[in-house]
Design a protein around this nucleic acid. Structure first.
Lengths: 220, 220
DNA sequence: ACCATGGTTTAGGTTGGTCTAAAAATATAC
DNA sequence: GTATATTTTTAGACCAACCTAAACCATGGT
């Protein structure tokens, strides 16, 4: 029996996210930070994952996922994002409320559950934050995304998603009527602090550089 | 912060069920058996639960739930049964497939989730096995139930639920077209082995005593 | 009243995931 | 190219939940 623990799953997911879909090496400190734990604990877990062949590990050189590790990560992400869609579409949650709850739900182990949920939701392709949902086979459609911080002046964009999905950031967006699909036009970029004046759904608004770095757009 | 672990929740639930809604004392061996563990482990956990004031415990005398323990148990049961309804009504599960999955889902911690789910399902009062679903305040409607093994001859009943919700038993019922609400008429009771001949949804069928002891009926 | 028996608790040990503190390896600075 | 700083690993311990084995209580039979 190949038992995989909750904690192992969470480390695998963190390695996947930190290493850009699991391709780059992730260093121990970054992983420990992401897991809210200490480097020594991360080292222990990394060894265990390598032992079980979910991760590639060379001492002092960082960690990356093996194919089997990536498969696990993608499956968890699929579950996470499907649950998010469910919560928002069916249970009246808002996009800033779903992340933590989905972190719990993503660990429920049942293939049938997730496939039926997928069908029940009409096989959605993106979650409420604009992130793509992997299909049964782990494939997902990667869309060309531009950060608002790199958008061109006088161009029109639509809002595709966010990078940081903390509720603070999402609530900031809510307060300014920016959601998925919002129409955003870049009016002016202030050279001094790189803050950006935009027209969002018709309303004028100036956003800081750090906001701009967390908002994904698509040219329209 | 009052942290309650998954394992603690499962022990509390087991004490509740074994002690008939938490009123009777439960002995250590029975609890260990139900939890698939050893008596010594059960003792450890019982002490911890008593420590946290979820259980009343006198050495060598067994364990029962305190009011706060009962509240926790009822809440878990509410979650369990609502998830079962969801799985059957929305995700095409059959009544014999849902129990184990609901054992996982019942531990998800979110008040909003469960209240929204309740509303989404139209505030159901019974789960797919006929068991009552506690409301927000932990109240549930206890219906007068008769076991088939105690039913009277020549009377008509409708199927209210089951005692044993193992998938083996539920599949046996499926194979004989017996589900919730099925009309059951007691035709004959064999004195020798107490097997019972019934007409179930019009079809004649003879069931053993052990089946009869697990099927709840209501006079109609 | 005693003792055998079975149920229950204690003692001591294991495992998974965590920690702190110290040692080892690598990276950076001059 | 050596010294210093940073990152990573190791060593040793802790806690929750479990185990086995031994000691402990309670009860029922004689």
């Amino acid at each position: 029996m190949f038992m995989i623990t909750l904690t192992e799953e969470n480390y695998i997911k963190a390695i996947y996210h930190l290493g850009k879909q699991g391709h780059e090496m992730v260093n121990t400190n970054a992983l420990a930070e992401a897991m809210n734990t200490k480097a020594s604990s991360a080292t222990d877990m990394i060894r265990k994952l390598a032992e079980k062949d979910y991760a590639n590990y060379k001492k002092y050189k960082g960690v990356s996922l093996t194919e089997s590790g990536k498969k696990i990560a993608v499956n968890i992400i699929r579950k996470h994002r499907l649950w998010e869609v469910f919560l928002v579409e069916k249970l009246n949650f808002t996009w800033d409320e779903v992340h933590e709850l989905a972190e719990e739900l993503e660990h429920i182990k049942s293939k049938k559950l997730i496939d039926e949920l997928d069908a029940f939701l009409g096989h959605p392709t993106h979650d409420p934050h604009g992130d793509p949902i992997p299909n049964k086979d782990g494939e997902m459609t990667l869309v060309e995304k531009t950060l608002l911080s790199q958008a061109q002046i006088n161009m029109k964009y639509s809002c595709l998603g966010v990078n940081d999905s903390s509720s603070e950031f999402l609530q900031y967006l809510n307060n300014n009527d920016i959601g998925l699909g919002a129409i955003i036009e870049v009016m002016h970029i202030e050279p001094f602090d790189k803050s950006i004046s935009i027209k969002a759904n018709g309303k004028l608004l100036t956003v800081s550089q750090s906001v701009a770095k967390n908002l994904y757009l698509k040219k329209i």
